[in-house]
């Protein structure tokens, strides 16, 4: 029996501790308040593609949180000002070379900022970490989802017919993609075809399709196309962070929750009750803000050149 041993080396444990210290110092110097949001809650996300892990607390059903987002937004609505949370998040069914069901998430919010200002700050943080390690300076790129997509696949992701997207997804995946919806076809094509073609360094992809807005506001872009004010950061081709110019309209939030619920019902997935406390906070008023969540284990993978997430974790799920 050697599987009692940790997954990461003792040297990696040191690098991990250093990274946590550097992250906290970065936010301390920028006067952003650290908050430790609960990981156990009575409610959870309705997102169709994110499954929560259920728990029982004194006989009541509960969930391990998939991100601290709802708690942080309640703090923002209560007047906390800029905040960050460095804590564990949990997602069921996610395990692989880049996934672990329990992972370390860094999430922060900036009042009065939009998504582009926040992209600047994500870039500053990661560039700083590269410099502190004496790594070659980081190339930072910014481009729209549509630019990335059409450059590789030759079609506009916003205006392409669903049947064309399905045909491309079928060719890239398997025949079962012929009946998939727009968002799923776009996800498959972006992951399999576009991501491998992204330049190395840090790439911010912004203006995501309207159908993938999640909790971001939407806007009409310079082409007259409705897009979401959402961005993702890719570090050397690996998805690292997801950010929004946050939706603050409680009615629109409720509507999106209900759309999620209907899609969950269609897909025979568990239905979770709406988080009325979050909706209450939005009704009270969430200040204009931008927020981002960043996978710390993946960041450490990139900083240390690790090939799998287990290499940077004390214990991956396989050994828990």
């Amino acid at each position: 029996m050697t599987d009692w041993q940790p997954d990461c080396s003792l040297a990696m444990l040191q690098r991990r501790a250093e990274l946590l210290q550097q992250l906290r110092l970065f936010f301390f110097q920028r006067q952003i308040l650290e908050v430790d949001a609960p990981v156990l809650g009575r409610s959870t996300v309705t997102d169709i593609n994110i499954e929560s892990i259920s728990a029982r607390v004194s006989g009541d059903s509960a969930y391990l949180q998939t991100s601290p987002e709802y708690f942080l937004k309640r703090l923002l609505a209560a007047g906390s000002g800029d905040i960050y949370c460095l804590g564990k998040a949990f997602r069921d069914g996610e395990a692989g070379g880049r996934h672990n069901p329990e992972f370390l998430l860094l999430e922060w919010y900036r009042l009065g900022w939009d998504e582009h200002q926040l992209m600047d700050e994500v870039g500053a943080l990661i560039s700083h970490l590269y410099e502190a390690r004496g790594l070659p300076s980081l190339m930072v790129h910014r481009r729209t989802y549509s630019q990335c997509f059409s450059q590789v696949l030759g079609i506009d992701p916003h205006t392409a017919a669903l049947s064309d997207l399905q045909a491309l997804a079928t060719a890239a995946g398997s025949p079962s993609w012929a009946k998939e919806n727009r968002a799923n076809c776009l996800d498959l094509l972006f992951s399999l075809k576009v991501e491998p073609q992204l330049p190395s360094g840090l790439v911010f992809v912004h203006d995501y399709p309207d159908c993938q807005a999640a909790l971001a506001q939407t806007m009409v872009d310079s082409q007259g196309q409705r897009v979401s004010r959402r961005f993702e950061a890719f570090l050397n081709g690996m998805e690292l962070a997801n950010g929004y110019f946050e939706l603050t309209d409680s009615n629109e939030q409720r509507r999106r929750f209900e759309v999620d619920q209907a899609r969950r019902e269609d897909a025979n997935k568990p239905i979770v009750a709406l988080d009325n406390r979050l909706l209450g906070a939005l009704e009270q008023g969430l200040p204009t803000c931008a927020g981002v969540a960043l996978g710390v284990d993946r960041l450490l993978m990139q900083l240390q050149g690790a090939a799998s997430i287990a290499e940077v974790m004390p214990f991956s799920w396989n050994r828990c």
Binding site: N49, E94, L188, S191, Q212, E239
Partner: peptide
């Protein structure tokens, strides 16, 4: 069998 999943997106297996 490689597990692939965009943070907010559909999970799939290559």
């Amino acid at each position: 069998n490689e597990f692939v999943k965009p943070g907010k997106g559909q999970a799939f297996n290559r």
